[in-house]
Design a protein around this nucleic acid. Structure first.
Lengths: 118, 118
DNA sequence: ATCATATATTAGTAATATCTTATATGTCAA
DNA sequence: TTGACATATAAGATATTACTAATATATGAT
């Protein structure tokens, strides 16, 4: 039974929202290769440094990056663990595309085949 | 080299944005069990029928649901294929949590170990 | 101390998202 | 045909997001 006050959740704590933005996904892609100081990341984009700084903040609040200070630099590292939640959620849907059986196969695999009226 | 005019992309055609909203994920969860007419879906939430109708529209534009008309009902079915893009993207990060080796292991597995200055 | 560098934060703006209420549309049933 | 039902669409309010320009903060170099 799904029901909750949707707008009350802290938006940025949410991994799904964090990865909804293509710039932030690109940042993670860059960081998955190796750690980077903030400016090196910003240089990869046609956005200003503050824009990237703000995106990094969202990623940090979602637990997707770690930050450490080295001199005046802030080195960002990926922290991929929260993506497990995404993987887990998506993995429930794998049966829908991985089987050659399609809808019939899924139906047959269900235990509960009794009729319910809509 | 990541750079694009972020705000120019049609927002709702994007699967990542579609699943960023918890209500829409819940709709997909409901539909992964079986198809449902729109009103049955709306009843599961503390939201109005138009709100759910709008969420279903976003899902449809992202290619995540199919709709068919049966009498005055609109039956919604899941169309999970676009989620493959999400799975594929996330799967690149599995090495970060699946290995017990952690960062060292990742490092050792890389071919390119040469030094680059940041 | 002063200046440059690397970065974050603030303030303001425009676009987008997410609701609600009211209304329109299409279908079935009497 | 008329009315009820199932749903979508429109209009409007408000919140959130994603940016920019300006400024603040901290560190390192001279």
């Amino acid at each position: 039974m799904y029901s909750w006050p949707v707008r009350l959740s802290k938006p940025n704590a949410d991994v799904f929202r964090a990865i909804a933005d293509p710039t932030r996904r690109a940042l993670l892609d860059l960081l998955s290769d190796k750690e980077h100081p903030a400016l090196k990341l910003a240089e990869q984009f046609e956005l200003t440094q503050p824009a990237i700084s703000q995106h990094l903040k969202v990623l940090k609040q979602a637990g997707l990056v770690r930050e450490r200070r080295v001199g005046r630099q802030r080195i960002y590292e990926i922290e991929a663990a929260p993506l497990m939640a995404v993987r887990d959620w998506v993995s429930h849907y794998e049966e829908f595309w991985e089987t050659k059986l399609g809808a019939l196969g899924r139906h047959l695999r269900k235990k509960d085949v009794k009729r319910r009226k809509n």
